[in-house]
Design a protein around this nucleic acid. Structure first.
Lengths: 138, 138
DNA sequence: GTAACTGCAAAATATTTGCATCCTT
DNA sequence: AAGGATGCAAATATTTTGCAGTTAC
């Protein structure tokens, strides 16, 4: 595990620092989406608030994480799959938000059906956010 | 038009005040989604910043507007259709964000196909955000 | 007249930037 | 050693809250 964290960072041309390792680890362990606030809570006073901002920013730019649209105002980030790289993301994501435990999960193997748009519209990306109850809370 | 604005407010048990009328009018005129910032700009110094917050809050609660998930961090609001009322919204919305003019449009007559979720997940709501090029910008 | 809405001031939060120092390569 | 990353301080921006005055019903 330790090794793979370093690998992910290196593969994305990010220098391996302890904050980046810790934050990346949080994403791997939680296997879901985290908001800025979640990270601050879970990493509890280990880093400066600013470092979290900058680290998330760097991860976003390098395509290590992507952000998830949510209906409430929270901004959440989740790990990208391997075939995401800088400026070249999955076009289709399904995200699931549990109304009970409010965890956000990426369902990468759910197929997004194509959406029939009105005449004149062209789609380049479809984001789907499903809310409901996850299998843990059922 | 004037009359219908008043009607919408009354129908939703909101007292008719000039700020509410103005802000509601902005939504009707723009026929799309607005962010808090958009409203401040368009209403240019007509109201207090705080009034905009509180008005949007009231509209949200009464179901006059709903908010739209966006991948970037902006929070956008759009008018609800008639059959949205307090605590009782459309379950399915398709929202379209134009990558060119960045306007956000509600496509209420586009059908959302059902999403096949993994075992154990139950869905209560599906939000779809399509980005691409709208018919104006084509 | 009463309850609700507004504006102003101020507090609480959240985000960004500059700079000196420290760590990675 | 050089460039990038971090932490601290401070500047901005955003959102919330309290309260007195005003407006809608």
């Amino acid at each position: 595990m330790e090794a793979s964290i370093d690998d992910i960072l290196k593969k994305n041309q990010l220098s391996v620092t302890s904050s980046r390792k810790k934050i990346l680890e949080l994403f791997l362990v939680n296997n879901g989406a985290l908001s800025h606030g979640d990270i601050e809570k879970k990493a509890a006073s280990k880093f400066d608030r600013v470092t979290v901002y900058r680290t998330l920013q760097a991860f976003l730019e390098k395509g290590v994480i992507h952000n998830i649209p949510t209906a409430d105002n929270s901004i959440r980030y989740a790990l990208c799959k391997d075939d995401c790289s800088e400026g070249h993301h999955h076009d289709n994501h399904v995200h699931f938000i549990c109304n009970n435990c409010s965890s956000t999960i990426c369902l990468d193997n759910v197929i997004i059906p194509s959406i029939k748009l009105p005449k004149g519209y062209t789609s380049t990306q479809v984001e789907v956010v499903v809310s409901g109850v996850c299998k843990e809370c059922k």
